[in-house]
Simulated assay, not measured.
Amino acid sequence: MTKEKKIWYASYGSNLLEERFNCYIKGGKPNGSNNFYKGCTDKTLPTESEEIYIKSELYFANKSKSWNGSGVGFIKTEFDENKTTLGKMYLITKEQFIEVVKQETNNNGELIIDFEKAQKSGSLIFRKKSWYGNLLYLGEQNGNPIFTFTNERNLTDKINAPNKEYLSMIICGLKETYNLSDLEIKEYFEGIEGIKGNPIEKELEKLIRKE
């Protein structure tokens, strides 16, 4: 019997923090969020997790009810070798991946994702007009495909700053995943749309030091 391949779910936002991502697996309410997640049918935690450098640009946009109307993270739909978004990926089953996506996109119905088609084309819009309805293929690691998701278009007309709670969660995730200094984390965020030029930019140093 051939062992079924697992899938790497790659995160670049609040799910960088493993404790927060695990709420999608085993259920729970993340700190600072208004949402309670029911978790997956299979509540087995990821068998592996590791860093990933995504060659696309991070930005913050839309108004999230989960985070009191603040912006949340997205990556641009096109890849750019000159841009790097720091991510973290988790090795989970295909069924868990689909259930994570359903929770992330508030989908209570049936969801079928053609992973092979996404691999061949590089992306797949599995739910139109959903915030995170665009599946992106990021390659393979140890024979298992890597996927993340973002919007079907670049939301440059809906740029919106993240709140302190959401940004703090990402900062905690970066510190958990990468060996970065406080200055390096500050420099990482300073040029990002949704942060640069907004009041939250002046809070960066304090938030990073606090976390």
Rank of each mutant, 00 (worst) to 15 (best):
Y188A: 05
N134M: 01
K128W: 07
N151Q: 07
K26I: 02
T150R: 05
N62G: 11
I125V: 14
L86F: 09
N34L: 13
K5V: 10
C40F: 00
E176A: 04
N68C: 11
G143E: 01
D42H: 00
G32C: 04
R20I: 03
N163L: 03
Q141E: 12
S70E: 06
R153M: 13
E165C: 09
I75F: 09
N62Y: 15
D182K: 10
T77M: 02
V100S: 01
Q103S: 05
L124P: 03
Y59D: 06
N34I: 11
S181L: 06
N82W: 04
Q103L: 01
G28R: 05
A10N: 04
Y37F: 15
K158G: 08
Y12H: 08
D80K: 08
N108D: 14
S64N: 10
Y132W: 07
E4N: 12
S49K: 07
F147R: 02
I192A: 11
E81P: 14
K202G: 10
P46Q: 03
Y24E: 10
L155C: 10
L180N: 03
T85P: 09
K196W: 09
G27M: 05
L180W: 07
N151Y: 11
P162E: 03
M169E: 15
F189T: 04
W67K: 09
S121N: 15
K175N: 02
F126Y: 00
E140K: 07
N163K: 00
N68D: 15
M89N: 04
T177V: 07
I159C: 06
G143Q: 02
F189V: 06
G194W: 03
K102W: 00
I170Y: 12
E50Y: 09
K76V: 13
R209I: 15
D182N: 12
E110V: 15
I195C: 04
N108E: 13
G13P: 03
I112A: 10
K206G: 08
F21S: 03
E187W: 08
F79Y: 10
E19K: 05
Q141A: 13
K29Q: 12
I171N: 03
E95S: 01
E176R: 10
M89V: 04
I112T: 13
R153D: 12
R209M: 13
K88G: 02
F97C: 02
E110K: 15
G27S: 09
T150V: 05
D182A: 06
E57R: 15
I52M: 09
E95T: 01
